Simulated scan of single mutants.
Amino acid sequence: MHHLQHVLLSTLLVLTGYLAFQHQQLRVDVQTLTTLQQGSASVLAETLTPIATKIDAINTVTSKIGKEADAASNQKLTALQQRLDLYKLIGTLNQANQLRAASKGAEAAEKLASTKKPIWQAGETFAAHKAKLQGLMGTLDKLIAAWKSGDTSTAPDAVSKVLEAVLGELGNEQK
């Protein structure tokens, strides 16, 4: 029995030595991996920091370009809408002229009067044409007064011609 204990103790001693050696090897491997991981993290940080800075700069530039493009687009749309409003005014003038031709002077005068404010505002919008557009107020007042009093002999052709001329000039400015 003594011999069996000796074998078991020897085996236990060899096994303990083997496990201690394996434990030491694993500690070295874990320490190597930890060092590599820290090195990789530091390399990634050094690499990604400039990239993140560049991405932020790109985002700033693209955001600015997007805002400028939106502003330019809105400005073009506004100008187109204002030109469209001038075309609508010509349509309203034509309606007033049809009422005048049908000897409906009061209705024609009312329709013609509804164009004064939009024409005045168009003069404010299109500063280069302000004098022409706002200069129509006297002509419009005379036509309105005449039509209300029953004199429907004069057509609003002069007003239409000025609006068409302004639209033509605006069209040439856009090109």
Rank of each mutant, 00 (worst) to 15 (best):
H2V: 13
H3A: 10
L4H: 15
L8I: 14
S10M: 14
T11W: 15
L13N: 07
L13H: 09
G17C: 15
Q25A: 14
L26E: 08
D29A: 15
V30F: 09
T32L: 12
L33N: 09
Q38H: 09
Q38I: 05
Q38M: 06
S40R: 15
L48H: 06
T49N: 07
T49W: 02
A52D: 11
T53M: 11
A57P: 03
A57Q: 12
I58A: 13
N59R: 10
V61Y: 04
T62H: 08
S63P: 02
K64E: 14
K67W: 05
K67V: 05
A71R: 12
A72D: 04
Q75F: 03
Q81W: 03
Q81R: 09
Q82S: 08
L84Q: 13
L84I: 07
D85N: 10
L86A: 02
K88C: 04
I90M: 02
G91T: 13
T92N: 03
N94P: 01
N97F: 01
R100W: 03
K104P: 01
G105L: 11
G105V: 09
E107R: 05
A109K: 03
L112I: 02
A113M: 10
A113E: 12
A113R: 07
K117C: 00
P118E: 04
I119G: 00
T125W: 04
A127G: 03
H129D: 09
H129A: 02
A131S: 11
L136A: 01
D141E: 13
K142M: 09
K142I: 11
L143S: 01
L143G: 00
K148P: 00
G150P: 04
D151R: 10
S153V: 04
A155Q: 11
D157Y: 09
V162L: 02
L163N: 00
V166I: 05
G168V: 11
E169N: 08
L170Q: 05
E173P: 01
K175Q: 12
K175Y: 04
